[in-house]
Design a protein around this nucleic acid. Structure first.
Lengths: 223, 223
DNA sequence: CTAAGAAGTTGACGGGGCGTCACTGATCTG
DNA sequence: CAGATCAGTGACGCCCCGTCAACTTCTTAG
């Protein structure tokens, strides 16, 4: 690998009270996370060693363990970083919803668009397909699930939804979102809007209200 | 899959000689698989080493590699074993379906009942929750997904379903089935029928047709 | 039945990644 | 500015991995 300084997507945590020491610590943590993103995307989670990550940074091996306890912990930190980006988007999208239709539509639209545009690029996604589901129970990810369930419960309390099992409904939304994302990533012409329309129609009116394709096959199943 | 009759040459080793040697091989393979199931359930996938599995058998370390190439391969074999049990059940259930309702209902009913009764016990399921989704692309599991998509396409061809995107619909069913299974496993009083009714109603009529609970909370979120 | 060969098992071994820790140098504090 | 604190460093010991030559068990031809 010849990556020297290819800065990846994740955002910068800006405000620091800053001693020079604290500043360096934050930087190093981010350096490790950025390197990990590249290496995981390149070789996949299983094939990556902690040493691979370290070699992709200017740091020494021991330094890694000042920041993370293991490869798994870096991966979880990456997931948390991602969750922290999409959660506010989802929250905001759902807040504006005044109807079931808007609630569901906004959720899927936001999610699929994020996966396709702001998320990791498709090549990385596919390489990570084998790992992206493991340990979904990191704090920030779980918090995202909880927020969804809370929002459903609130919507029920407001009379927006019928009084259904919010936990199962949350699970169904999450399951469809993730599983469809994986299918979407395998299509050469992925279309967030079409995917969101499909999922939204399914949740609002069931199978009979799904958009028709004319032949029942996927428009494109990609390479 | 569909064998076009363009491949006659490979000689048929069809009749099983079933010598003592072959018998022992089958036994050893099963011994390893059974040990792996226990060890994975006990410590989780990530924390178990190949040596742990071997230590749980009367075999030597080298023997393991006569049967599997790695820890991952044992895990995949376990998944395949499971897939081989449930796939015929699902196929049979769907074959009898004459309507969309029956198709969907039979699928979820069969799946949730299997997970709860014939599947691994809940304790093991919860311990494996972090790993059960990884590498879902083993041959038998993928074959199960393909069968579902094929059955959907057939149903569309028969006019049973509207002509929708079969790939996305398959993904949606799979996503809901697995994600709801995980939630179900976390409830102390899991009810396959209730879960199946929920999922079936969702797919047939959307959110508004879901069974009401009276408060919108889960009946029980377990320990 | 027996002996040659095939098939499978064994466990020690070289290779390598893991996590640690004593040491060093940089930053902070009084 | 000196002493205290803290992060960085990289060699080290540990353990796991996958292999392989020697050994044991089974099969089969005569």
């Amino acid at each position: 690998m010849d990556q020297t300084e290819t800065a990846p997507p994740p955002p910068r945590p800006a405000p620091k009270p800053a001693g020079k020491r604290e500043q360096t610590k934050q930087q190093n943590r981010q350096i490790i996370l950025d390197a990990a993103r590249i290496v995981f995307a390149e070789h996949g989670y299983g094939a990556t060693t902690v040493r691979d990550i370290i070699r992709a940074t200017p740091l020494a091996s021991g330094t890694f363990y000042n920041y993370f306890q293991s490869k798994e912990e870096v991966y979880q930190a990456m997931q948390d970083e991602t969750a922290l980006v999409i959660r506010p988007k989802l929250r905001e999208a759902r807040e504006k919803a005044g109807t079931v239709e808007e609630f569901i539509s906004a959720t899927f639209q936001t999610f699929f668009e994020f996966v396709l545009r702001d998320g990791v690029d498709v090549r990385a996604m596919r390489h990570n397909a084998d790992t992206m589901r493991m340990r979904m129970d990191t704090p920030e990810v779980v918090a995202g699930f909880d927020e969804l369930r809370e929002d459903i419960e609130k919507a029920i309390a407001r009379g927006l939804f019928p009084p259904v099992d919010a936990d199962y409904l949350m699970a169904a939304i999450v399951g469809v979102a993730f599983e469809m994302s994986e299918r979407m990533a395998r299509r050469s012409e992925a279309d967030a809007k079409a995917a969101a329309d499909f999922a939204t129609a399914l949740f609002l009116g069931g199978i009979r209200s799904l958009p028709h394709t004319g032949n029942g096959k996927a428009a494109d199943s990609g390479a």
